[in-house]
C-alpha cells in the first residue's frame, strides 16, 4: 500500500514536471485569450481568432518581402521565417468591431519578448502596448505604464516618419517615435532589450498593416523613402 502511494505520488511529479512544458509553435498567441481580451475590452461580447500564415496566402511571399523591406533590419531566419504563424484577435461588441489585438515574438537578450498591441480598428492607432513575456534586467522599467504609454496613439505612419526624421531632422518634435527614450533607471545591460522592444512594436504594427489595415500607411513609407533619396 505504501509503495503504491509512493508510486502514485511519483506519477504526479512525472506528470507535473515533465508534462508541463507543452510549448506551442513559435507563433505568438495570448496565453488566455478570453480572459486577457475581456480585461482589455470589458464591453467585449465575442472575439475572433485568425491565424495568419504567409505560406497560406496567395500573395504571401510578396507580403513577407514587404515586412522585410519595411522593418529596417533583417528578419531572424529561424524565428521570423516565412513559415512563422501569427494570430490576429478581432474584438466585437455584438456586430461592432471594437479593436484588434496582435502580438509578436522578438528575441530579447535573455529570452523571448512577447509584445501585444491593442489597436483601434478605425484609426489604426495603438491603444495599449503590453508585454506577455519579458525576461530582462530592465523588466520593471520596460513594463512600467509610463514607458508603455509612450506607444499609445502611434501608428505605422509615425514609424515611417521617424525613418525620415532620424536621418534628416533628428530634433524635430513631430517625430513621435523619436521622442520615446529608454525608461529612466534602465540598466545599461538592458539597453538591447529596449531596442528589441522598439523593433518589436514596429514589427507588430507592420504586421497589422499587412493583416488588418491594407497597408494604409504606405504613402508615408514612400514619402519617407523618396525624401531620403533626395
Amino acid at each position: 500500500m505504501k509503495l503504491r502511494l509512493a508510486t502514485i505520488c511519483f506519477c504526479a511529479v512525472f506528470v507535473l514536471l515533465f508534462a508541463m512544458p507543452s510549448f506551442a509553435a513559435v507563433g505568438c498567441t495570448l496565453s488566455n485569450p478570453a480572459r486577457d481580451l475581456k480585461s482589455l475590452f470589458p464591453e467585449m461580447t465575442t472575439y475572433r481568432e485568425d491565424v495568419k500564415e504567409f505560406t497560406k496566402m496567395p500573395d504571401g511571399q510578396e507580403k513577407y518581402d514587404i515586412l522585410k523591406a519595411r522593418l529596417g533590419d533583417a528578419l531572424d531566419p529561424v524565428y521570423e521565417s516565412f513559415e512563422t504563424p501569427y494570430t490576429l484577435y478581432s474584438i466585437y461588441k455584438g456586430d461592432e468591431l471594437l479593436g484588434y489585438v496582435h502580438g509578436v515574438n522578438v528575441a530579447g537578450k535573455g529570452g523571448v519578448i512577447q509584445i501585444f498591441l491593442s489597436v483601434d480598428p478605425q484609426t489604426a492607432q495603438v491603444e495599449k502596448m503590453l508585454f506577455q513575456r519579458l525576461e530582462s534586467l530592465g523588466s520593471k522599467q520596460l513594463r512600467s505604464k509610463e514607458f508603455r504609454n509612450n506607444f499609445v496613439g502611434l501608428t505605422m505612419g509615425d514609424f515611417y516618419k521617424h525613418d525620415y526624421f532620424a536621418a534628416k531632422d533628428a530634433a524635430n518634435t513631430a517625430d513621435k517615435v523619436g521622442q520615446i527614450k529608454p525608461p529612466q533607471g534602465l540598466d545599461d545591460r538592458a539597453m538591447p532589450d529596449y531596442e528589441t522592444v522598439m523593433r518589436g512594436v514596429r514589427k507588430d504594427l507592420l504586421l497589422l498593416e499587412l493583416f488588418a489595415f491594407d497597408m494604409r500607411h504606405e504613402p508615408f513609407f514612400e514619402r519617407a523613402q523618396s525624401s531620403l533619396k533626395q
Partner: peptide
C-alpha cells in the same frame, strides 16, 4: 531539478502592475 521563475508572464501582469501569472523553466 530546480524551477527558474519567469518574470510576470501574461499581459495581466502589465495591467495589474506586476501581478502576472507564474511560469517556470525546468
Amino acid at each position: 531539478i530546480g524551477l527558474a521563475e519567469k518574470q510576470n508572464v501574461g499581459i495581466m501582469g502589465d495591467e495589474d502592475e506586476g501581478d502576472g501569472s507564474n511560469a517556470f523553466t525546468i
